[in-house]
């Protein structure tokens, strides 16, 4: 997408420069050719290809109900903190650090207490809004154990920039121990 954009930008600006500096080089091009060529032939196939790719990729990323149900972690946002809970482990206490199992997809179930927030771990994927009255789900996967930074991406008032959190991905063996043992 990036190189495509660069190429298109260069093409348009080059044509503009040529038309200003050497109009004779382009003077033989008919008006219809400009409109059909530049306005239709050039962008339409590119846009269609992009749309199809994006649609397929988007389908792939969806949290669809499938054969293997991933773990569901609940993320609840309020001004200005996140609280993560793990309903699949009976006694797990809620945490302020998000603990993820590495190497497998998880569904984060995002809700909000007061105003609109947005759940985003830039290195793991897209974001999803936390909206009062709504429940949203995003499917993420941390490939390797480690620490990832998460933030609130929707403006939510005075403490907006302080509403970051830490996401720790654990090797599957350690995972249950971690959330079970965390106060």
């Amino acid at each position: 997408m990036f190189w495509g954009a660069i190429a298109l930008f260069t093409l348009v600006i080059a044509l503009l420069a040529l038309s200003l500096l050497r109009p004779s080089a382009l003077a033989s091009i008919k008006p219809r050719t400009w409109i059909v060529g530049g306005g239709l032939v050039l962008p339409v196939p590119i846009l269609i290809a992009l749309l199809i790719t994006a649609l397929l990729l988007g389908e792939h990323l969806l949290p669809k109900p499938g054969s293997a149900e991933p773990l569901r972690i609940e993320a609840h946002a309020s001004q200005w903190q996140w609280r993560f809970s793990y309903p699949f482990i009976p006694d797990a206490a809620p945490t302020t650090i998000l603990h993820l199992p590495a190497g497998e997809p998880v569904d984060i179930v995002v809700t909000a207490e007061d105003v609109i927030h947005s759940f985003w771990i830039p290195r793991l994927g897209g974001k999803i809004d936390a909206i009062p009255g709504h429940t949203n789900i995003i499917r993420l996967q941390a490939d390797k154990p480690g620490v990832y930074r998460g933030i609130c991406a929707e403006y939510c008032g005075e403490g907006h920039e302080t509403m970051g959190f830490e996401a720790r991905a654990h090797a599957p063996a350690d995972y249950a121990v971690t959330i079970g043992g965390q106060p």
Binding site: V12, L15, L16, L18, S19, L20, P23, L26, A27, I29, P31, T33, W34, I35, G37, G38, G39, L40, L42, P43, V44, L47, L50, L51
Partner: peptide, 21 residues
């Protein structure tokens, strides 16, 4: 994405106007 097409039509109409003038 589609709205880029009428935009492109105008951009090339302008460039075409310059080039043929």
């Amino acid at each position: 994405a589609l709205v880029a097409i009428p935009t492109a039509v105008q951009i090339f109409a302008w460039i075409g106007t310059i080039a043929s003038g």
